[in-house]
């Protein structure tokens, strides 16, 4: 099985780290794209371990630091052989090239926000109208949260993704390197009233922007 770490551009040398299962990193060019992978004998039905996640993340991190652009691959997928990998890449070469250009010179930041009360819990509402009133209140609170926390950061990003969570939302931001300092400052100065739990992390390699399904 072939385990993929990502598609890179402008990588000089492979980083001095091993891949999953201690396998050496390998590189290969296809359709003008450079792939970094390792071979594993672990069948796909094996469980994913914490170590594997961290190892994969470390390899991606090292590659990101040595490349002009990177499309990180996720853990959990494996290609049967070189042929299957080549086919997959050929079929998507154009999109991959576009994505690579979009993330060039950028890093990813993440935001996760939750509000005090469990947003979606609706304790016994007596009537239908009551139920909708509670929902409206929750929706407004969520909208307010998004406006105060997400929008200021989105303005500083080249692209964003956002998704609703049971009691708040999470978002990812594609930020150009030259905007990172400003982004960090904005992230630490967010207005989180009414009291919300807010977690901002980064910079990450652009995992969430490795494909074209984002705004």
């Amino acid at each position: 099985m072939i385990h993929l770490y990502g598609i890179v551009d402008g990588l000089d040398e492979l980083p001095p780290v091993r891949g999953l299962d201690g396998a050496p990193l390998e590189r290969r060019s296809l359709e003008g794209l450079e792939l970094v992978f390792s071979r594993t004998s672990t069948p796909p039905s094996a469980e994913v371990s914490r170590e594997a996640v961290l190892q994969h993340a470390q390899v991606v991190e090292e590659l990101a630091g040595r490349s002009g652009a990177i499309l990180p691959a996720q853990l959990g997928h494996a290609f049967r052989d070189d042929g299957e990998l080549a086919t997959a890449v050929r079929e998507q070469a154009a999109q991959l090239a576009r994505c690579l250009e979009r993330v060039r010179g950028c890093v990813e930041f993440g935001l996760r926000a939750t509000v005090a009360e469990a947003g979606d819990a609706v304790p016994e509402a007596e009537t239908g109208a009551d139920y909708l009133r509670v929902r409206l209140e929750q929706a407004r609170r969520l909208d307010g949260l998004v406006a105060r926390l997400h929008e200021p950061l989105a303005r500083l990003a080249r692209a964003t993704t956002r998704q609703r969570r049971p009691d708040g939302f999470s978002a990812a931001y594609l930020v150009a390197r030259e905007d990172v300092a400003q982004f960090r400052e904005a992230a630490t100065g967010l207005d989180r009233a009414p009291e919300a739990t807010v977690v901002c992390t980064g910079p990450w390699p652009p995992y969430s922007f490795a494909s074209e399904a984002q705004s």
Binding site: H77, A78, A88, A210, S211, A213
Partner: peptide, 11 residues
């Protein structure tokens, strides 16, 4: 997932 399955292959 849009093209997130780009790089995926499931036996």
């Amino acid at each position: 997932v849009g093209l997130r399955v780009l790089l995926a292959s499931v036996a």
